[in-house]
């Protein structure tokens, strides 16, 4: 393992829930992450902001092991999960991800979307899984949609189901990958409300987002990504209120207009 320079002086790596150490990831000649380091402590909510192509999504996909990193290390509770040849499935049970395009299974009912991994991965009985699904659907106001198919739902409802599907596994870490980018503006609120409700429940969240107001409101820390590294990181009030890095200032000027 090659530990890169730790350019984010935040909670000590040992106590970190999720830790990226000098992670490099390239797709062909396109280097998406360069020597990327970040520590996130348990229960912390960290937002990743930055232009398209700055590497936000790739950071999340590397933590969930959907991408194999080229160099560096990804740690979960101090345990190196990115080693080559390691079974990714136990890690994925502990780290949930919600995608920009929902990615619900279109041939399954809402309830089955939620219970599939519960029965097949966690080995729960159909009844137990179904109870868990109903409980979560009720909590997020989707009870009457249990037996409906995804394409009969609005985008906002689909994304809420996708969040529930990830939550049903009781993950320790939840990765949210631009979860409102594919939604009509009037549907964004209902999805963000779900995330607001999750904050403080002890779950660790990494959020890649273009919703600056939301990032400011919900995050403990905000990272501004540029060219595959963290250009600036800090509390939302600092980063949005008094950005130090020139690139951050430029970016914020552009998105605020």
């Amino acid at each position: 393992m090659t530990a890169g320079p730790n350019n984010t002086a935040t909670p000590s790596a040992a106590a970190a829930k999720v830790s990226l150490r000098g992670v490099t990831k390239a797709f062909g000649n396109n280097v998406v992450l360069r020597d990327f380091s970040l520590d996130v402590s348990a229960g912390e909510v960290v937002s990743l902001i930055g232009a398209s192509g700055s590497g936000k999504t790739t950071v999340l996909r590397c933590i969930n092991l959907l991408e194999q990193i080229d160099d560096g290390a990804v740690l979960l509770d101090g345990d190196e999960i990115s080693s080559v040849g390691r079974d990714p499935n136990p890690v994925r049970r502990r780290v949930g991800i919600v995608f920009q395009s929902f990615n619900l299974f279109p041939h399954m009912s809402v309830a089955r979307n939620i219970t599939l991994a519960l029965t097949e991965v966690l080995g729960q009985t159909t009844d137990a899984a179904r109870d868990r699904a109903s409980e979560l659907l009720r909590r997020f106001g989707l009870s009457e949609k249990a037996d409906v198919y995804p394409d009969q739902l609005s985008g906002g409802q689909q994304q809420r189901v996708a969040i529930i599907r990830a939550l049903a596994m009781k993950p320790e870490v939840l990765l949210l990958d631009e979860i409102t980018s594919a939604l009509d503006p009037e549907l964004v609120g209902e999805v963000l409300d779900v995330v607001r409700e999750l904050k403080g429940s002890g779950i660790t969240m990494l959020i890649a987002t273009h919703e600056m107001a939301f990032a400011r409101e919900i995050s403990d820390r905000v990272c501004f990504l540029h060219g595959g590294t963290i250009a600036e990181v800090g509390a939302p009030s600092e980063l949005f209120g008094a950005p130090r890095d020139e690139r951050t200032k430029q970016f914020l000027r552009r998105v605020r207009m």
């Binding site: 994925r92 049970r93 949930g96 995608f99 991994a117 097949e120 991965v121 990830a166 596994m169």
Partner: peptide, 8 residues
């Protein structure tokens, strides 16, 4: 990706 991310 969705299925694998759930641990399947």
């Amino acid at each position: 990706a969705a299925a694998r991310s759930l641990g399947l």
